[in-house]
């Protein structure tokens, strides 16, 4: 079988698994009191999707002799796998099933993006030994930010329902409010550690980018702003007790910025011929 066809088949199967998982999570959320059957199916399909996506990265890397950690889209693919596995390994006591409704569609989007956007080569003048560390820590950080922002979004939704005296509408479907707040904080903390390493290693290249394009400069600036936003969220939580709604908004703001950075990376890749 032609290698590209094989990799397309793997991607298609992974996409189908993610789509099925999303649908099952949706059934769970829309069922009164939640549906344990639907979540069971959703988790199984998510495992399948993650394994297939990992297989895609390995296959692509081996067949086309590409190091995943030196290409943004394959690295993002790997980060998505990490994100899915991290989510699946969250202890059941957290009752974080509903978070899947946020995690899985993100995984699906990135899977498709990694298939249709070309593999950009890092310019020769920017290559050095820290490059794989820079890329992998940043994408791992993004993976945890997806989880954190999913929990934050769910927190805000549930908070709104409780304030509107519709608290019973979420019984059994969404994790408790405090659980979501704690989960968002922990995911953010882990992601922030990765992102900080990524920022430090990335700083090595800043001097070389003085002659870079405006988009590249914008991307770097946005990266720093994102790091600053996340650090503010964490700092204000520990010093002033900014948790709950404020922390959730801060997490979502940081997430939007981090996704803009990723979009700029992928956009650059998309503009290059495959």
């Amino acid at each position: 079988m032609e290698p590209r066809l094989a990799s397309d088949l793997i991607v298609s199967a992974a996409a189908a698994a993610y789509a099925g998982s999303s649908a099952a999570f949706f059934v769970h959320i829309s069922t009164r009191g939640g549906s344990s059957r639907a979540t069971g199916l959703a988790r199984t399909l998510l495992w399948l999707g993650a394994v297939l996506q990992f297989a895609f990265v390995v296959h692509y890397g081996v067949v086309f002799r590409v190091c995943p950690m030196k290409t943004i889209n394959l690295a993002i693919s790997l980060a998505v796998v990490v994100m899915c596995v991290a989510y699946l390994l969250v202890p059941k006591t957290f009752k974080a099933d509903a978070l899947g409704l946020f995690v899985v569609p993100v995984a699906l989007v990135f899977l498709i993006a990694s298939r249709f956007i070309g593999l950009p080569d890092v310019p020769l003048n920017l290559r050095n030994k820290l490059l794989p560390v820079h890329i992998s820590t940043n994408v791992l950080g993004d993976a945890f930010f997806v989880l954190a922002s999913g929990a934050a979004a769910m927190y805000l939704f549930q908070e709104h329902q409780l304030k509107a005296k519709r608290g019973a509408s979420v019984f059994g479907r969404i994790p408790p409010l405090d659980t979501l707040d704690t989960a968002a904080h922990r995911f953010l903390l882990i992601g922030f550690v990765f992102m900080t390493v990524g920022a430090v290693t990335g700083s090595v290249w800043v001097s070389k980018l003085t002659m870079g394009t405006t988009v590249e400069m914008l991307r770097i600036m946005l990266g720093y702003v994102t790091w600053a936003v996340f650090s503010c969220v964490l700092l204000l939580r520990s010093t002033l007790g900014w948790r709950g709604k404020r922390a959730a908004y801060g997490t979502l703001a940081g997430f939007v910025l981090s996704m803009l950075v990723v979009a700029l990376y992928l956009g650059r890749a998309g503009m290059e011929p495959r």
Partner: peptide, 20 residues
């Protein structure tokens, strides 16, 4: 069997929904 149908148990369910 989902949810509670007495006032006190509905209150407890809400407390669990907030605090786990």
């Amino acid at each position: 069997g989902a949810g509670r149908v007495s006032i006190s148990s509905a209150a407890i369910d809400l407390a669990r929904q907030i605090f786990g």
